[in-house]
């Protein structure tokens, strides 16, 4: 498989990364080099093989459903690019 210019645009949009026109062609070549490299995996017989879901054979631990953290709104907002009255500020989303 290899990607064309339109696919590069689509991926860039999905990844929310602006790609300039002159960059797209270059990126297409690089992505295709990586895709060609990982293509080797199609030679492996994976019939009936379980995909790895957990690196260590263990069940996810459960804990009591109680509040263990919170009340640190100032900390949470400390690195915000823009905040107002305890809220993150973003460009208008709803007209």
């Amino acid at each position: 498989m290899s990607v064309d210019a339109a696919t590069v645009r689509r991926i860039a949009h999905l990844a929310r990364i602006d790609v300039a026109d002159e960059e797209a062609e270059h990126l297409r070549g690089e992505l295709n080099a990586i895709i060609a490299f990982v293509e080797q995996l199609s030679a492996v017989d994976v019939a009936g093989v379980e995909p790895m879901r957990s690196v260590t054979p263990m069940a996810l631990p459960m804990r009591d459903d109680v509040v263990t953290d919170g009340g640190i709104a100032d900390d949470v907002l400390k690195n915000a690019p823009q905040e107002d009255a305890g809220f993150f500020v973003v460009p208008r989303v709803v007209e």
């Binding site: 990982v38 995996l41 492996v44 994976v46 093989v49 995909p51 790895m52």
Partner: peptide, 14 residues
């Protein structure tokens, strides 16, 4: 084709 297969290969590597 990609992710699922890679995780299967990972099982084999392990």
């Amino acid at each position: 084709a990609y992710y699922l297969r890679a995780q299967q290969v990972r099982t084999l590597i392990k």
